[in-house]
Design a protein around this nucleic acid. Structure first.
Lengths: 221, 221
DNA sequence: GCTCCTTTGTTGGAAATCCAACATACTTTT
DNA sequence: AAAAGTATGTTGGATTTCCAACAAAGGAGC
């Protein structure tokens, strides 16, 4: 676990926490680690909520699935990022969505209840942690707003371009790598994979962008 | 202002706050009230962020708009509910969306910075307020997840039914009133108003539901 | 009552998506 | 290197949405 202390101290959740305080805090938060193999579920719809997940290695996708296998990707958490925290902080009892390991993962699991309860020990940093969590959850909110903005576009091409322009803006460069393969990108944007591939090809032919796998390059923006 | 104290004390934001503490807290939060007439903007994309809005009277819709006038309704805050809080808590500097008064409004405006900063006065309840805010923002997150779930359905009919079923579930009854007119519902679900009206008519003819204006009644669920 | 204005419902043709099927490219395994 | 498996790209027809235009219903004000 100690090998991940530097990573944790650099995350928004533990911003402002001193290295010597981290170990007792983790103890106070009931921290445990788990390993999940690529493709396996981290949690499933209906599971008990109340935990906060931190990605130490690998990445986790949070998805909504219906009976027919339609899946909508809500969030993608990479190293150092949180998942499931909003469900815990909203104090609901069962998870309304599922989470899967996109690749082999090592995850840190914290108890939300222990974070929100003033503990009897000498752990004085709950309040800083709660403020950090508020910032993180609010940021997740903005991420969902972005997804909604992409999904609100009328055509597949517009959804794609809105997403790609946002990635370029966030990266600060017209060249960037996305965290999705084609199927996952389609699931995130709420479009057909095949129709999306066709649009990508058209955009490439039109000279608006170039790509190879998950690496994209916007041209003439 | 005092006439709204009971309302405020009953909101999730001020949960656990005693009546005698409310007045100094509001002062500490830099509280001001504004009146906005029906249809007028409460804030516009590009405005400075950092404030938290509380609806005292009327209701506020938060919308994303693009150049072509396409609008997507992100949230709808009624009496006692908050708006713009996620943008303030994420500490971004300008609003990425706009807000409009759906009807004549009276609004309470609080400073997010003052909430997150430990003040020098005798105001000891910042921490409770931050915890309350965390719960509220997490709940807003779930609301966005719901909207995404509706929008992720493939057809207009499926989007409608997913939304209506959720309203019935939330109300605890197959009869309920929605806070949208037809245009607003279409903007919320990301569909065409006219196509949606047609689907509503079909569903009524098929005997699956009945409605009059904004009052709905699901049948044979 | 009447008119004006807004909201809601209806319709038909153009455009886009959806879906299944298949082709091609790339990876991994053996 | 061959084979198997996965990911990506391409195509065509059925379905659905989109859009504009108009009809009908309801409300506010006179």
């Amino acid at each position: 676990m100690r090998e991940y202390f530097d990573l944790l101290l650099a995350t928004p959740l533990f911003a402002g926490i001193t290295p010597e305080d981290l170990a007792p805090m983790l103890h106070c938060l009931g921290a445990t680690t788990v390993r999940i193999s690529k493709g396996d579920p981290v949690f499933l719809e209906g599971d008990a909520a109340g935990f906060i997940g931190v990605v130490l290695e690998g990445s986790v996708q949070v998805v909504q699935e219906d009976f027919y296998g339609n899946r909508s990707i809500l969030a993608h958490a990479v190293k150092g990022e949180l998942f499931a925290e909003a469900f815990a902080c909203a104090e609901i009892d069962t998870m309304p969505v599922s989470g899967y390991a996109v690749r082999d993962c090592k995850l840190l699991i914290l108890s939300c209840q222990k974070m929100l309860t003033v503990c009897s020990s000498a752990c004085l940093f709950h309040n800083q942690l709660v403020k950090n969590m508020l910032r993180v959850v609010a940021q997740k909110n903005l991420n969902l707003n972005d997804k909604i903005r992409f999904m609100s576009q009328k055509t597949t091409k517009e959804k794609l371009m809105a997403y790609l322009l946002e990635q370029a803006k966030a990266t600060g460069s017209p060249e960037f790598t996305i965290p999705f393969d084609r199927q996952a990108l389609a699931d995130y944007l709420g479009v057909e994979r095949s129709a999306m591939s066709a649009e990508l090809s058209k955009l490439k032919k039109a000279g608006l962008l170039d790509f190879k796998g998950s690496q994209f390059h916007l041209l003439r923006t």
